[in-house]
Design a binder for these strands. Structure first.
Length: 498
RNA sequence: GGUAUCGUGGCCGAGUGGUUAGGCACAGGUCUGCAAAACCUGCUACAGCGGUUCGAAUCCGCUCGAUACCUCCA
């Protein structure tokens, strides 16, 4: 098994990955809150962890990938028309909202061609586990009850576990203590840094459960602690999520796990960076936002045209997951061209015949160069899942593919096994690791292939008679429907432009 | 205000104490009936100022700038 390095937020360094159980990976990623449409930032995070998931699978690990659905605690009754409608059926059920956006989220994950997680637990399906955890934290003495709500006692916990609180976010406790911002619902808490692990419901709260303390709902951070423990154990390998969850979510999660079982929940914490739009974080209130669908359709002032999901995904993979990534029209345009070219290269490569008789039997510079590039691609992935480096290596391999196709390199110069390996590696990275799909491939291949063969045959006859008028007419007409014809040395080829 | 991360060429974006990232764009060339595609060559870098070092874009300090977080946002 290859040695893999990943950047651990806890240490602030790249560390070699050592699984708790040999051959197994337990990974928990904070999933979306399903009270509105998935936005692009979510997509980037889950695309990043999908590649991580896929790379572990490729390395031969058995992976249990848990990604939750947060479907509790966000919907309140605004007291207006919903109440006025009176009947139960006319009111919007919280679960109805959660269901709608859960379906939408799954659809988006499908569009981006990500593999489903092994387990996708819902917060509402794990209320008993969360209540048990609150009880355990109370029993350990790290929480207190106030008027039906239960709060985690941060100062006490921090004093008894030096170096734990703040280990994820890098936050200094003194700064938290000095926090002066006016916050709502502070009066019940002993300390501003304390946070709720059980909230007593207010009249307008719609999703509520019975508990030993009150009718209420669990604190936001608790679900992840409870569900990761349930499905991955008290300590597991990897915990992931967006950068913006470091504090307070992950910090408090760690505190809860410690508070309940005295141990750190995960050995490695991975955080993906933010997606920016024209240099700024996307924000609905400031109008600086674009939805995935707007991006796909081009129906947005921020883009000149639509970009397909695979182009968007490729664009994401061109950057490292820990870097901020700025969406601009120009950058997307560049990604689109690069993506199309890589897909075309792969198509040419997979159609290249491997003929052992061509081989001159000696290892050539070409062989060595290709093998080195393959190693570069792997090393990129081994180095904290650096997809940008891997894509760069693929692009360089692509130059050799074209040279072979153009016969600028003699077929005898490349060993059959190297060519086979190149084919395999291209497919592996593009399909299996990155989950990129060639969108120009028609689902109705037989018909289209047959028609194209006929048309190009007629054109080729015309060309052999130097009937350029007919030849160009065919080429122009095909171009008009988005098919480009390329006259190469090895005959004619064609491709569809997205 | 506090904390963290970052500042790479026309654009996007890797990386790193001494060796080509890559993509897009641009210019020239090869190929082609003409194109397109492809291939070759070229092109503009490491925010600023100091310091460490034989050597720094890479380490350290300061300045400036950007982004994010600071109680339910991936």
């Amino acid at each position: 098994m290859r040695s893999l390095k990943l950047y651990n937020t806890l240490s602030g360094k790249k560390e070699e990955f050592k699984p708790i159980a040999p051959g197994h990976v337990g990974m928990y990623v904070c999933g979306p809150t399903v009270y509105s449409d998935a936005h692009l930032g979510n997509c980037r995070t889950y695309v990043s962890f999908d590649v991580i998931h896929r790379y572990f699978l490729h390395l031969g690990y058995k992976v249990r990938y848990v990604r939750n659905i947060t479907d509790v605690g966000h919907l309140t009754d605004d007291g207006e028309d919903r109440m006025a409608k009176g009947t139960k059926i006319a009111q919007l059920e919280p679960m109805e909202v959660a269901q709608k956006y859960t379906v939408g989220f799954h659809e988006m994950m499908r569009i981006f061609n990500t593999l489903p997680p092994s387990i996708e637990p819902r917060a509402t399906g794990h209320i008993p586990e969360q209540i048990e955890m609150v009880e355990e934290i109370l029993r350990q003495g790290y929480a207190y009850e106030r008027n039906g709500s239960v709060y985690f006692n941060v100062p006490k916990f921090a004093a008894e576990h030096p170096g734990v609180y703040g280990s994820v976010s890098g936050r200094v406790l003194d700064d938290l203590y000095a926090e002066t911002r006016a916050l709502k619902n502070q009066e019940e808490k002993d300390h501003p840094a304390d946070f709720a692990i059980w909230m007593k419901a207010r009249p307008q709260d719609l999703m509520v459960w019975n508990s030993p303390w009150s009718v209420g709902f669990p604190g936001w951070h608790l679900e992840c602690s409870a569900m990761s423990t349930k499905y991955l154990g008290k300590t597991f390998d990897i915990h992931g999520g967006g950068n913006d969850l470091k504090f307070p979510h992950h910090e408090n999660e760690v505190a809860q796990n410690h508070g309940a079982c005295g141990c750190h929940p995960a050995n490695y914490w991975l955080h993906t960076n933010m997606l920016l739009l024209n240099g700024k974080k996307m924000s609905k209130s400031e109008g600086n936002t674009i939805t995935p669908h707007e991006l796909f359709s081009g129906d947005s002032p921020f883009v000149s045209k639509g970009y397909s999901p695979m182009v968007v995904k490729f664009f994401m993979l061109m950057a490292h997951y820990r870097s901020t990534l700025d969406i601009t029209d120009e950058a997307l345009l560049a990604a689109e061209k690069g993506f199309r070219k890589l897909m075309e290269t792969n198509r040419l490569l997979q159609n290249l015949p491997v003929d052992p008789n061509d081989f001159d039997g000696s290892e050539s510079d070409t062989d060595r160069a290709i093998l080195a590039l393959i190693e570069n691609a792997y090393q990129g992935m081994d180095d904290d899942f650096n997809t940008a480096v891997a894509i760069a290596a693929l692009n360089e391999m692509g130059a050799y593919v074209h040279k072979l196709v153009n016969q600028q390199i003699d077929a005898g110069e490349i060993a059959p096994w190297v060519l086979e390996r190149l084919k395999g590696v291209f497919n592996l990275f593009i399909s299996d690791l990155f989950g990129l799909q060639d969108e120009t491939a028609s689902g109705d291949n037989n018909t289209v292939e047959g028609l194209m063969e006929l048309i190009l045959d007629i054109r080729s006859n015309a060309r052999s008679q130097k009937d350029w008028a007919t030849s160009d007419k065919i080429r122009d007409a095909l171009a008009a429907v988005g098919i480009s014809v390329k006259d190469g040395k090895e005959g004619v080829s064609w491709s569809k432009n997205g």
